[in-house]
Structure formats: C-alpha cells, structure tokens
Design a protein around this nucleic acid. Structure first.
Length: 120
DNA sequence: CTGTTGACTGTTC
DNA sequence: GGAACAGCCAACA
C-alpha cells in the first residue's frame, strides 16, 4: 500500500463516522489496517480542502482532547464549534483544552465491516 | 545517510 | 488525571 492509497482509505473510513459521534486517530489507523500510523492519519486530515466532504472534526486524540496544533492557531476552536453544531457536547478543561466524552459520543467499531454497517 | 519533526499512543509513575 | 518517557514511521532538510 502506498501513501496515496493509505490516505484514500483514511478518508473513506472517516466518512463512515456518524454525525454526532467521534473517534480517534489511532482507531482510524487500526480500521484501515495500519495501527501504528496514527500520526499519519493526522497528516492526511491536515491537507484536506475546506470544502471536502470528509468530516475531519469527528477525529480527536485517544484521550478525547482536541489537539491544539500549536499556540496561536484556531484550528482546535473551529473543530470544537463544528462538533457542537452537530450535537456533540465539547467541554473546556482547566488548561483551556477542548474535550469530548467517548462514553457518550465515542464510536469505536472493531472492524471496517462493522463500521460500514454502523454507518448506514 | 542522519537527524528532526509531527492534527499520535501506550505505559509508568 | 497529568507529566515524562519511549515507541512509532513517512517526510524533509
């Protein structure tokens, strides 16, 4: 599998995440069969166009915290707003991080097949 | 070829 | 629960 294929699989899988649900980079990587490539899932989402149909905002870190992407950037803020807009409760931690609850909004199918069934 | 760099993760205090 | 590490791996200088 080359990089382009990996990215395509990542995009296809992210598109399966239902509205109002969230999952993690690592889980997307596991679903496409490359569990050690979580960082590259982030890289794949980073280069998306704004008008893309990929719901990138539904992907957060394994702890449920929205990665800041560096001080002075507004990416995390926009992601939090996008999630709130589709019904996901985002709380703000003491340290100013945005965090979602996997207990109420998590989406972690074991396999790609289960993911596709869930997405219907 | 050798570091360094990440929209990351798991383990261990 | 959070901080400190150690893995991780493709891209890039």
């Amino acid at each position: 599998m080359d990089l382009a294929e990996f990215y395509e699989k990542v995009y296809d899988t992210v598109r399966l995440v239902p509205q109002g649900k969230v999952t993690s980079y690592g889980h997307i990587a596991a679903l496409v069969g490359m569990p050690r490539h979580s960082r590259h899932v982030g890289a794949a989402l980073k280069i998306l166009h704004e008008d893309s149909d990929v719901p990138w905002q539904r992907i957060v870190s394994s702890t449920g915290v929205i990665s800041s992407r560096g001080p002075g950037t507004t990416g995390a803020q926009r992601q939090a707003e996008a999630l709130e807009a589709e019904g996901v409760h985002v709380e703000t931690t003491r340290m100013g991080q945005f965090k979602v609850s996997f207990a109420t909004n998590g989406w972690f199918p074991r396999t790609l097949q289960e993911a596709q069934q869930d997405a219907q």
